[in-house]
């Protein structure tokens, strides 16, 4: 599984390197990341720019992650590609996540 997890102190940054979050990996993706976010207990930023396809099982995995974090901790999704953004929008799940454009490089 292509995931890079970095604890920056205030937030946990997860860079998703998988090109597809689909039925072939959704369960492993969910189980692995749920463990990671529960362990760290801090706001999560997921960098999604490398993901160019997600289906409803991938969406289910993202929702399971949101539910694994306590409600006061934000889960921010950055850099959604059009195919991934479409799934969040059509299912209205874009209202549940904090969706932002790709962050500018900060000096």
């Amino acid at each position: 599984m292509q995931l890079t997890v970095t604890d920056t102190g205030p937030t946990l940054v997860i860079a998703v390197g998988e090109a597809r979050i689909d039925a072939a990996i959704a369960t492993r993706f969910k189980d692995h990341l749920r463990e990671v976010v529960v362990h760290h207990r801090k706001p999560v930023v997921m960098q999604m720019g490398a993901v160019d396809f997600m289906d409803s099982s991938g969406l289910g995995a993202m929702i399971a992650l949101r539910k694994a974090l306590s409600e006061d901790l934000p889960l921010t999704l950055e850099g959604l590609t059009p195919n991934v953004e479409r799934v969040f929008r059509l299912t209205r799940m874009d209202t549940v996540f904090d969706i932002r454009p790709e962050a500018e490089n900060e000096e």
Partner: peptide, 16 residues
């Protein structure tokens, strides 16, 4: 149904 207390994790496929 989107219940923010207990979000659905499935049931989206046929809707899409």
């Amino acid at each position: 149904i989107i219940d923010t207390e207990d979000l659905p994790e499935g049931g989206f496929g046929w809707y899409l």
